[in-house]
Nucleic acid binder design. Sequence first.
DNA 1: TCGCTTGCCGAAACCGGTTTCGGCGCACAA
DNA 2: TTGTGCGCCGAAACCGGTTTCGGCAAGCGA
Lengths: 354, 354
Amino acid sequence: MTISDVAAELGLTKGTVSRALNDYPDISEGTRLRTRRAAERLGYRPLGSAQAIRTGRCRAIGLVLETDEHDAHRPFLDLFLAGLSDGAAAQGWTLTVATAPVGAALETYQMLIDERKADGFVLPRTRLSDPRVAMLRQKEVPFVLFGQHGDPDGCAWFDIDGADAMRNAAHILADRGHERIAYVGGSRDYAYNGKRESGLRAGLAERGLSLDPALVRHGANNRESGEAATTALLSLNAPPTAIVFALDRAALGAYRAAAQNGRTVGEDLAIIGYDGDPEGAYAEPPLASWAVNWGRAGSTLSDMLIKRVRGAEVEDLRATMPATFLDRGSASVIPTPDPERDGAVNPSQLGGDS
Amino acid sequence: MTISDVAAELGLTKGTVSRALNDYPDISEGTRLRTRRAAERLGYRPLGSAQAIRTGRCRAIGLVLETDEHDAHRPFLDLFLAGLSDGAAAQGWTLTVATAPVGAALETYQMLIDERKADGFVLPRTRLSDPRVAMLRQKEVPFVLFGQHGDPDGCAWFDIDGADAMRNAAHILADRGHERIAYVGGSRDYAYNGKRESGLRAGLAERGLSLDPALVRHGANNRESGEAATTALLSLNAPPTAIVFALDRAALGAYRAAAQNGRTVGEDLAIIGYDGDPEGAYAEPPLASWAVNWGRAGSTLSDMLIKRVRGAEVEDLRATMPATFLDRGSASVIPTPDPERDGAVNPSQLGGDS
DNA sequence: TCGCTTGCCGAAACCGGTTTCGGCGCACAA
DNA sequence: TTGTGCGCCGAAACCGGTTTCGGCAAGCGA
């Protein structure tokens, strides 16, 4: 079923049918409707590749996933893909996915661009300094960042408001009686880390607290490093009563560290993670965390990219989405000092520099 | 950089260049080489969409992921995608991914076919009776099953040999002294379930044991249902000393059930899962399981599908891949009866119908 | 009545490839 | 010498769309 078949059916030429379907102004309303109905009735769908050769657009969103990234745990990849795909499908677009080792990613982008397998790209896991951005900018290929870049000028971007989540985490913990609150971040190459830390700091300040430099750790992006960071924090002379992690998978490592240091998560140590990793629900006690709606994130990114390809200005393509708090057992109220117990954890001794 | 540019550079016509690059027999060896070098030097890459319009092939593998499937936990999706993508890229192909609710999947396939966004499909999660197979067969669109179908005649397929894994699991447990071994399967709609159960049965038979019907459960595809199945099994008059699960995520639910029934996994209850879910490594004790090389599975599927599109016969496109055993703490040796303890678990009372 | 605009559509070029067809030039056998 | 076959390449059609251009006919004012 080609456009010529539709044209023959209507006694028109294919050029006219094409213009009718694409809403050219020099087509009468009657012809437009007749054509549209006939196309619908005959089940005509324009061949993507045939359009692409003339228009230069294949109606496809490109996504390059970087493999062999040691902390690339992706429990939500399917939801994210579903969101991207839904957002694309709503406009008649599709999704072209490729994978590449971190080092060879640029070549993969180049290939997809040269063969015109994608009209633009969603860039996940943006780093503070990201070579993909420079390349796509130079080639004038549309893209939307997921997460922010060190230099977001001239970029369209979408981000989860991790800073605000951390700010609220600080409020929650402070309101529950915590005063010594620690932060354990992930890799510093990514923009999210700095944003989450500064968000936490801001939230603490709003409660008259501050983030003790001794209570800040970085580079914890899996259970082992989360466990190590927690052990280090609990070994301090003035240990924290609550720890906020930038990543759930690091937070899950804190449970074992707490047990080995005579602490019990949810009783004398509060923990809040970030990501809403499903594993957290099965921890004992369940891990409090910030859940991200990955499906909506994906569909929003698709929308933004399609608009960008169609010519929207980057200044109009910037948005954030809040994360929602999963208030679970690990984010406990601080216990009141119990004279029956030994004073290993005595809040009155703490309070830090606030 | 189009084919005409290359032709002009060489003083040839674009038709000749095209034939040279596609190894037509009526091109002299010298011209073929000259052309190939020039194309390489100029960085020429044929436009996928331009080729597609004439050849009818866009050099893309289609993958439709079904969403809102309640047990669709996919911890390895990224590895699988990477494998598919690598296998495709090795032949200059790409990957078109779409998602769809289970009910609407057929329309998504239809759309991708009509718009020629894919030359063929990899069908993951094949069910015993699968409408996708009938549809693609009827439309004569190439496809490769991942997992087997109820009626695999006329189909190309690739499968992980779950039956053999289960057979070996039976051997391992029997050789470690277990005699009452239970099986907890997943959803019966999928072919893998029956295969794993019969594999276990075969392995037991080879050790002179049999699978007590009372020790078989089905439909456990998450922690909760795994926990429930385990509780039921442990409440029997003659409970099992070992349980084999068709899915790790069900096996992880057994830990809590064991604890609540006074058992300790790895001491008086052996557990073997299947999938190699990374969470299993963090369980206490770590969950023994069967790991699947998802990357290789993906690249093999890509290879097979590309061959199929190029005309290979389905009979020549069938393969299985073994899973490898992760021998971890939960798959313990059965304890010798301890006269000091109460007789709640006394292997000498057991042995079932073997 | 004439001329000019405007609405609407046909005709044809075009996009970047692939594939078919035909013919030139050379080697070889008759 | 002529005919034949073959190796090799140019020319052009073709794929299924999009876009440009030109022209017909109706409407309108002068």
